[in-house]
Design a protein around this nucleic acid. Structure first.
Length: 564
RNA sequence: UGGGGAAUCGUUCAAUGGUAGGACGACGGACUCUGACUCCGUUAAUCAAGGUUCGAAUCCUUGUUCCCCAGCCA
């Protein structure tokens, strides 16, 4: 919607690309890739990377591949592959016929490894995991060379072939790069390239019992796909020398360049796969698509739109600074988009019955209501009005403060799209003291006009005709955690927000919401944006609150409270 | 501690030796049959200390703080 007019984004990565283009690297080609590991659902942090990689491809008329980085069979599955495909598509991106799997390269990668052995750049090491760790040294001390470092090429070739053939147990041997055990960069101390893992792979089955490590597979996958700019997150900066080391030895011609940017952190949530998995597996949320989750599928169910998420990703920018983006920016982007597209409707969340004493018992009037105040092309709908209504409990106070523009003793208020009503009396439950019913009178002149005597009505409240109301369930969501940066806490579960979900089962929606389709967003006037949930039944719609409307009253009320 | 990175309004991104700017937030106001939207305004920053320069967020020096790396994870 805003895309054609929005300026081309600029950041340090695009600067590097521009520079490369000027120097005519890669024959003016730009090729990126989004390389998730299919061992979990993608989240808003991945969305940043998706937007970056696909966005760059679009901007430079290049290509962006979707590649499953599936080199560790543990935890990977087709379910995750499918979810990633669905989510990236939903975000609005297209990789055409370029869906790739690192696992499709296993044979080629094996041949590359053989090549490395032949040139004396790799060897089979028979140290076990613990011994390798001990020999690696520390930050301050160099590592020790493996006793197997100087095996002959022939022996290495033989051993590596037998590793592949399944002659050895897990961990018995590894293939290691012969680099430098004294390197100040620990990544370069003869890193493991292949490990034996007798684990079936979700795609290759038991065809393989050795699997390449990320460092070996990733750079070569990039090279084989002709990737020009391999964009990844900051924690891989230390791995870049290894990336280059491998590619330089095995690939001729133009090589991909790795560029690192800072991953997204979002306030009041966690974005590490490990932690998200824990939330799901231990049932702190109801699944990957729980609307409280920062997963793409969760946000979709919540009712966030792809446009809003893309715009958010554009707003936050790309840099190398560690960041913690305030979730209010995301909410702003969601509201901005939904304000445009969501039709308005009325729904009462916490109902309080109102009887209009001077309104005829059997009378029903239809009020024509605009579906969108700024977009008349979205049309109108008929909303019935009758003697008994529901209003929001919050919209009545027995003894309201001055600035309260709603119903209270002696107060008048506008019913949205309908009459001005005036408070007359209330009925209380004698035991509890709770107000159970209000009696009001209406001013017949005010149907679609301001009062003829010129008096100003400050407040406008939403309402639903009791007789015509549709029973609905509404789910209110709040931030999942109570602290800004739960991701930085080891015991992050201690900071779960116990009130992150509130289920309201006795809500009343206007009749037009009867057949609302799952996935459609509405603005419930004065409340917020709501999405029709998957759990919706024919006779019982279920709505998720996507995000509340900005609310300046709460602040005023808080200020009032302080004064008294 | 060795290596690799990063430090600019509360948050985040920009300024590439020449007026420190935008967005979000916060605060104030206008408008209003949504206390929404919209509009207007205010707030507020160069990690520190030296140096180079007519001029420094930017270049140099010395510090300081934060992040990443010792998986056969990615």
């Amino acid at each position: 919607m805003t895309e054609p007019t929005s300026p081309a984004p600029s950041d340090f990565i695009r600067d590097i690309i521009d520079e490369g283009l000027r120097a005519n690297k890669h024959e003016g080609r730009v090729a990126t890739r989004f390389p998730p590991e299919p061992n979990g659902y993608i989240h808003i942090g991945h969305a940043k990377s998706v937007c970056l990689n696909f966005g760059i491809a679009r901007q430079y008329q290049g290509t962006c591949n979707l590649r499953m980085d599936d080199t560790d069979p543990l935890g990977e599955s087709m379910e995750y592959v499918e979810s990633i495909i669905r989510d990236v598509r939903w975000l609005g991106f297209d990789w055409e016929d370029r869906l790739f799997y690192a696992s499709d390269y296993f044979e080629k990668l094996y041949q590359f490894a053989v090549e490395l052995i032949k040139t004396g750049n790799a060897y089979v090491c028979s140290l076990n995991a613990e011994e390798v760790r001990e020999n690696r040294g520390t930050f301050t001390e160099p590592g020790k060379e493996s006793p197997y470092r100087n095996r002959s090429v022939a022996e290495n070739l033989d051993l590596f072939a037998r590793m592949r053939a399944g002659e050895f147990a897990d961990g018995a041997h590894t293939l290691r790069a012969r680099i430098d055990m004294a390197s100040p960069n620990i990544v370069m101390r003869d890193p493991v390239l292949y490990r034996v893992k007798r684990e079936p792979h979700y795609r290759t089955g038991d065809q393989w019992v050795i699997y390449p490590m990320y460092d070996f597979a990733h750079c070569l996958s990039d090279a084989m796909e002709g990737i020009t700019h391999s964009i990844c997150t900051l924690e891989f900066e230390n791995n870049r020398p290894l990336y280059d080391w491998i590619v330089e030895r095995l690939i001729s011609g133009p090589r991909p360049r790795q560029i690192e940017f800072a991953r997204l952190n979002l306030s009041y949530t966690v974005l590490s796969k490990r932690r998200l998995i824990e939330l799901v597996k231990k049932n702190y949320v109801q699944g990957w698509d729980d609307p409280r989750m920062p997963t793409v599928t969760g946000m979709r169910r919540r009712g966030y739109t792809p446009e809003a998420i893309r715009n958010f990703c554009a707003q936050i920018g790309v840099a190398k600074n560690d960041n913690l983006i305030d979730v209010s920016l995301l909410e702003y982007c969601v509201r901005e988009d939904l304000n445009e597209k969501a039709p308005r409707a009325m729904c009462v969340l916490r109902p309080l019955k109102v009887v209009i004493d001077n309104y005829p018992e059997d009378q029903v009037e239809q009020f024509e209501c605009q579906n969108h105040p700024q977009r008349p092309e979205l049309g109108t709908r008929q909303v019935p009005f009758s003697r008994e209504l529901y209003i929001e409990r919050d919209d009545f106070m027995e003894d309201p403060p001055k600035k309260y523009h709603r119903l209270g003793a002696g107060r008048e208020v506008r019913l949205r799209n309908a009459y001005v009503i005036k408070y007359e009396s209330m009925v209380k439950n004698e035991q509890t003291g709770e107000v159970v019913e209000l009696h009001c009178t209406y001013d017949p002149q005010t149907g679609n006009a301001t009062p003829s005597d010129g008096r100003k009505i400050q407040g406008v409240i939403h309402w639903v005709s009791a007789r015509h109301a549709v029973s609905a369930e509404v789910r209110l969501y709040d931030r999942l955690f109570t602290i800004e940066d739960p991701g930085s806490e080891e015991e992050f579960l201690n900071y779960l927000n116990p009130a992150s979900l509130t289920v309201l089962k006795t809500c009343y929606a206007e009749g037009s919401l009867q057949n609302a389709k799952p996935g459609s967003p509405y603005q419930f006037e004065r409340l917020g944006y709501f999405n029709v949930d998957l759990d919706t039944q024919a006779d019982k719609p279920v709505f998720n609150r996507i995000v509340p409307l900005r609310d300046s009253w709460t602040k005023i009320a808080a200020g009032e409270k302080k004064k008294t």
